[in-house]
Design a protein around this nucleic acid. Structure first.
Lengths: 212, 212
DNA sequence: GCGTAACCCTACGCACGAGTAGGTATGCTC
DNA sequence: GAGCATACCTACTCGTGCGTAGGGTTACGC
């Protein structure tokens, strides 16, 4: 009679992924606090204690989500922007991969990311990820500069990179809120804003405040 | 005996401001959810029911904070960037005012703003404010374009403006996290990234994706 | 000086949701 | 097929914190 159990038993690795899928979905929809562990468990087709057994507390679960999605994103970018390309080409491919990723995970990644910015417990995790991005961008700029025989203070580079990353994140938000927008086009627009400005800087053109 | 009450009674308008001050402080420190109405009340030197009587529920209180601080910021910007100035001058003054404001309210405005991004209930309020900013920036770009005899699709303008606003917000975050950074210098850096790129666009220089 | 409105309090009710205790079934190993 | 680990469940406890009931006190108009 019980030869076919209503719901089959699955190995841990599989269930963990299902739970993470559900968690990303629910966290995105409701936000970290409004999301309940019960709903996540139900959505994963499992009971709550299993979630605790496998992924730990609510905070740990959220961090796990952030980590998995963040890693996927970084891989998407890294896979697209080979380090031996010229800077503008790298930037372009990186941006295209980034917006492509966000576009394909509209209600996952972007929202998760947004959540994490507000809550202190996750500031660390977030900062790490952003720092890696900033580092990559700053490295690209620096590389291009040296090839041009010029040099800029590291802090300035970091701030510029920060601004570029910020602008990109912002457009990612915009993309997440506009279901019909095309990721590719968004990336092009970002290039227009970012690279034209950055290219000027790289060629030694700077803006100075008026004497006033 | 009771000629000098331990704590004096104050008119509503005054108490409301005190409550809002306390609320901004606590919301910033703890985040929306972790902040408790009790703590806010205590910090304001008043009891909880008064807060409910004057400012309503926790959500309404948060919106009130957001609204007051947002209005102050907009005024600071509007007061600095007179509409009859040339576009670059306006942008510069607006940015300087903005970063000045954020710098002066490091643990108030920026953190509050960050909070609001994550929680759905406030998305509307936030979107309204950002939309006003985007509109202003887009208007500046558009104005500069027309003066140059050129024209760009409204959507493109909006997206560019969005990116600029995003970059600016991002640097505001950076500023909030770096107590020693100078707002003025940050504004200059932002100008470098933003205006040099925007200026190129305004002069008809655009970046196009490689045939690939 | 007396009523009334505004200011302010001490206590509670109550829902919600994180996390757990304790137990059952299933498959795998030898 | 006995033993054991792994997958899985139902049914709780318990803290936390929002929001309120109900009542006291000071100022102000008349």
């Amino acid at each position: 009679m019980s030869s076919v159990p209503a719901f089959k038993r699955l190995p841990r690795a599989v269930r963990e992924q299902q739970m993470l899928d559900a968690a990303v979905k629910v966290f995105s929809r409701r936000g970290f606090h409004a999301a309940s562990m019960d709903e996540i468990a139900e959505d994963a087709g499992i009971s709550k204690p299993m979630v605790y057994a496998y992924l730990g507390t609510k905070e740990e679960l959220f961090v796990a989500c952030l980590h998995r999605e963040g890693t996927r994103m970084m891989q998407a970018i890294a896979g697209a922007a080979a380090p031996d390309l010229p800077a503008d080409e790298r930037l372009w491919r990186g941006l295209r991969a980034f917006f492509g990723f966000v576009g394909a995970h509209r209600d996952g990644w972007a929202v998760l990311y947004r959540q994490a910015r507000g809550e202190q417990p996750f500031a660390g995790e977030l900062a790490t990820m952003r720092a890696r991005l900033v580092e990559v961008v700053a490295g690209m700029l620096d590389h291009a500069l040296r090839a041009d025989g010029r040099e800029i203070a590291a802090i300035d580079l970091e701030v510029v990179a920060y601004a570029l990353v910020g602008a990109t994140e912002s457009l990612a938000d915009w993309l997440a809120d506009h279901p019909d927008a095309e990721p590719e086009k968004t990336a092009t627009r970002m290039m227009n804003v970012a690279w034209l400005g950055a290219a000027q800087l790289l060629h030694g053109v700077t803006w100075r405040p008026p004497a006033d």
